[in-house]
């Protein structure tokens, strides 16, 4: 180790200490700057933390587990402010918009009759969303539903 170098650094350190006396003002300034920096950094970190438990994946939304619905049963889910009706059939899950095309009531699955019914004006849809009877002017919009690893994904 070069002694002269060591001496020099020691000298400047001493010099600094004697010249700039850290008074109260400096503490506030340094503390304030640190606080400002932290106040910028911490929200940024929290912003980066994912907020949605279920995120979109490839344009598909994760709406729950397959096991939550028994075969022949159904479930209503809320995705992006709209209600969807999932019906589990023997060979998978079918996803419908649960909003009746007549006056906008929320439709329900009738497991016994194996059809989708609107409680308001007795509109009836089949498992392809087609109008079986009643006043609905259009078929029920059907959404693509996939099952991956026991999770149901629908396209909204």
């Amino acid at each position: 180790m070069d002694p002269s170098l060591n001496e020099k650094t020691g000298e400047t350190l001493l010099e600094k200490k004697s010249v700039s006396r850290r008074d109260f003002l400096d503490y506030i300034i340094q503390g304030g700057l640190l606080a400002t920096f932290m106040a910028m950094l911490l929200p940024a970190l929290s912003y980066l933390w994912p907020v949605t438990r279920r995120g979109p994946a490839g344009g598909m939304m994760d709406v729950g587990l397959l096991d939550e619905i028994p075969i022949g049963g159904s479930k209503k889910v809320v995705v992006e402010g709209s209600v969807f009706l999932l019906v589990r059939t023997d060979d998978g899950v079918k996803a419908f918009s649960a909003i009746c095309t007549h006056l906008g009531c929320v439709v329900a699955w009738d497991a016994a009759k194996k059809q989708i019914e609107c409680p308001c004006h007795a509109g009836v849809f089949d498992l392809d969303g087609r109008v079986v009877s009643g006043p609905p002017p259009r078929p029920l919009p059907i959404h693509l539903a996939n099952i991956v690893d026991g999770k149901i994904y629908i396209q909204v």
Binding site: P43, A44, S46, Y47, W49, V51, T52
Partner: peptide, 9 residues
């Protein structure tokens, strides 16, 4: 609306 503090940024 969703990301924490996102509105501020």
């Amino acid at each position: 609306t969703q990301a924490y503090m996102g509105w501020l940024y």
